[in-house]
Design a protein around this nucleic acid. Structure first.
Lengths: 199, 199, 199, 199
DNA sequence: TATGAATGAGCATTCATTCAT
DNA sequence: TATGAATGAATGCTCATTCAT
């Protein structure tokens, strides 16, 4: 169990991470200075280093937070007892709802190749792979159960879906003509059409 | 008409742009130094400033070069007298073939919001819009001619397609299991399934 | 008289000083952080400031501790009723035995000019002078009593002796081929040969 | 052969090194900022990095310059055809004359253990060893030729001599009562008395 | 007494940009 | 045209010091 102090420090870290993600998303990793991140939190640059070893560490922990959320969501979906169509629908919708509600957090994770290096890079890439493969599992299950078109190329379809989902960050705006829910539904509908078997 | 001297300069600029794009794609705009770009060309940092006003200018002209290529390609397709299915197929395939063959050039264009500002940003965004709307045109034509499902949401579908296409840069590798052509075909096949009317 | 509480504090200070000297000797004054000194004592940085006004003060008190020890030793020798040859011998030997047994403490005192300033510097330099002049006294006595060569230049000889003695810190190691005692004897023998009158 | 440009750059480097040595000697490596070194040369901090990779590099090259000078001198002496007494005399004198005339350069080399690390440290220590062993050679030769007392401990005597020589930096001042030459003579005379055989 | 947290001044280093040649 | 040299503003990071608890 966490002591009170550990809880407090964890809470503070979370605050910093959220705030950092906003700035990082807007200006990119290299374009963001520690000063900016700190200023956004009414902190001083130096204080940031009490909580994070360095800038890389800050980015990595941001990445972690988003990844943990994302993986948790999709694992819920994959491990449910819904049918594959419902699962894919929900995976797509849940990704969009999460990504749009935490837009800055997701944006910040873009291009890990440029921003991470060494072990951090490896770990980040592995987590992305893990996330991606959950879609493979759903697609595979759908084919086996005869609800998805058995002629689809699972890898390609997975790339198409993930590409479509990630792209939402580039254009989605809260003030846009459609709510996040509407977008989520629409995406699910169109993407499903790509894989369900014609009856 | 261009004088010989102007042609020579233009040629040199092209060389620089290509080389710069490679470096920029790998390390990102902010992560790339003028020195690296220059070194890659066996030039000195200082010399770059003979051809480009500054680093922003270099990036922008890189962006232009790719955009010109891309727009030319898609306009050829849109303005042809093929049927909408063929047009969409070709637009998708031509995008993938261009993007994979000039991967670094395309990668470098990512996230204009972070790298451009002021007029450059506006112009870059406008060109992206122009490119995107060509897909709208194809989709619209397909619906009007009764070959595309009239219940699709053109905007959403366009986003899905563009997202899928741009995402290829994140995973495509020359050494991958599929050639660019195979990927292009596969993408076209799957994406078309999303829009063509069931007969 | 010291109260029990004062004694406890004094004891703690001693502990800190010894520990600090070790770290300071290894990395130099500027190269050592308060954090390192504290960590070595299983303390926190902040706590150090209960015992010492600041980093300078810490160094100065370290210096004091060593100086007090050194001066006490040499004064014992000078004030004894031995003959000058015996005195010089013992002064040399006692310096080496003390310096080698408290190597880190002595090393840390190097280059007061770089590490002290203001009053601290003056005081440190004065103490060094005091220490040095005890050797002058022995040499003078030796000449007067006719056992030391009256043609020697006392100042020069003192410099040679002190230089030789201080240099031991640069090379002495507990694992070396000679024990501290052997070194002390050897130094005394050679240095004496420099000053005793040929009979 | 060096081109004119290479010569110019080498000259500039020399200027920087000399100036840097002065500041480094006064404040120590860690206590000296690049800004101070630069200011002393009417340069900007940034320009220093055109000539030196970093602060470590600057220190190391300073060290090299002094070492090269010192080694050259002592090798001249050792390789001459003088008798051992004359050789030791000259080695001592030449060290003192060099060290006093380039006091800051020599001071700056103090305590390589604290200022160098890795390969630089190894190389610096090796050069010091090389320098030291030239004294061993002279002593050895003297014993073999029967002019030095065969009961001396060469290693100890070498330590005493080097210690005495290096210590001059701590007290020598141009305004002192004795000129460098007088000091050199005096040192040589006293130190020789320690090793020459009584006839 | 002790310490967790915060701070701010300082520093090494990088890099786009300039300019004389 | 090309470049060597210089610059200065920016930036990540460190660390002595403070202080409320």
């Amino acid at each position: 169990m966490m002591s009170l102090r550990e809880k407090k420090i964890a809470k503070k870290k979370q605050d910093i991470l959220r705030s950092a993600a906003t700035v990082l998303a807007e200006k990119g990793f290299q374009g963001t200075t520690m000063e900016e991140v700190a200023a956004n939190l009414l902190m001083t640059k130096g204080s940031m280093y009490y909580y994070f070893k360095n800038k890389d560490d800050l980015l990595f922990q941001c990445h972690q937070m988003v990844m943990d959320l994302s993986l948790e969501k999709i694992e819920q979906v994959v491990n449910s007892d819904k049918d594959p169509i419902k699962k894919l629908e929900q995976a797509v919708e849940s990704h969009i709802l999460l990504a749009t509600s935490e837009k800055s957090m997701f944006l910040m994770m873009d291009q890990p190749n440029q921003n991470f290096s060494g072990e951090h890079l490896e770990e980040a890439l592995q987590q992305r792979k893990d996330y991606a493969h959950h879609f493979d599992d759903i697609l595979q299950e759908g084919i086996e159960k005869g609800v998805f078109d058995e002629t689809i190329d699972i890898r390609m379809v997975r790339f198409i879906i993930l590409g479509a989902l990630n792209w939402t960050l580039q254009w989605y705006s809260e003030d846009g003509p459609q709510t996040a829910e509407e977008i989520a539904n629409s995406y699910a509908k169109h993407l499903l059409k790509m894989v369900v078997k014609d009856q």
